[in-house]
């Protein structure tokens, strides 16, 4: 790892100030992706601004029929939250399936979504649930927030503070993890809203990161059953293809994971 300067911010204002002063600053959540990237010398920020100790960025509370989760809340905290389990069980189970127990003790919601790894799990939940990302500047709808592989709508100096997840009458996430890395090769989040409408979001498979499956959504709105999506797959053009699986293989995985998610919801 190249040299860097570590700062611990006590407030969002202080974090913004530290970032403004830094030559090439990076916000640090749990560091479970950023630190390995720095160790490989693929990233070399001059300054790291740790935001995990900022009080207002931590914790989970009820928000209307859903939940609001601070950006510095860890995956382990989301997975273990009775409130999340009760309101949006699919979200709790998604968080409990990220990485391994030790990684979940460090990794944060805000860090995961700000990085927008195409194989990260959280983007699928945010898009399918219609979540709102609250930053220190504005509110962003999840679909606006994720703008491409490792790309988000965030400005350089913008800080994710929390995410508001509307409640769902049914929700589930199913992923096919790469047997070695455990990252999703395809992960599908299915959410049924109170009004009966359904959203389906896919991670791990798209070249541009998370995407929705409108055809599956329409089919599930009239018949919320695994069979309803059995014959629907995304176009393999635009899907990731690598040594772990071809685009066609991933397209089929999306169908299988969608069926499993609907069955579990």
């Amino acid at each position: 790892m190249y040299e860097t300067n570590y700062h611990r911010a006590g407030s969002i204002a202080e974090a913004a100030e530290l970032m403004a002063k830094a030559e090439d600053g990076k916000l640090l959540g749990g560091g479970q992706t950023l630190l390995p990237t720095m160790k490989q010398r693929l990233a070399a920020p001059s300054d790291l601004v740790d935001v995990t100790k900022i009080g207002e960025m931590n914790g989970i509370c009820e928000d209307g029929d859903g939940v609001a989760i601070g950006a510095a809340t860890t995956h382990a905290e989301v997975a273990a939250s009775d409130l999340v389990k009760q309101k949006i069980p699919g979200l709790a189970s998604l968080a409990g399936g990220i990485g391994d127990p030790a990684v979940r003790h460090m990794g944060t919601l805000g860090g995961s979504i700000a990085n927008n790894d195409p194989a990260a799990d959280y983007p699928a939940a945010l898009v399918a649930l219609g979540a709102i990302v609250k930053t220190n500047k504005r509110d962003l709808a999840a679909e606006e927030f994720f703008s491409g592989m490792f790309e988000t709508a965030l400005d350089e100096d913008e800080i994710v503070m929390s995410v508001r997840f509307p409640g769902a009458s049914a929700s589930a996430y199913s992923k096919y993890p790469n047997p070695a890395s455990r990252y999703a090769m395809a992960g599908v989040f299915v959410a049924k809203a109170g009004d009966g409408s359904v959203k389906v979001a896919v991670t791990g498979a798209g070249q541009d990161g998370v995407f929705r499956m409108p055809e599956m959504e329409a089919a599930l709105a009239s018949n919320f059953a695994p069979d309803a999506v059995a014959g629907i797959a995304p176009d393999a053009d635009g899907l990731l293809s690598d040594i772990h699986g071809s685009a066609a293989y991933r397209a089929n995985l999306v169908t299988v994971m969608a069926k499993r998610a609907v069955a579990a919801a």
């Binding site: 570590y6 560091g31 630190l35 990684v103 460090m106």
Partner: peptide
Amino acid sequence: KAVKACTMLAAQAD
């Protein structure tokens, strides 16, 4: 809490 000490800075544990 169990964490991987190779993926955490000593400064984070201050």
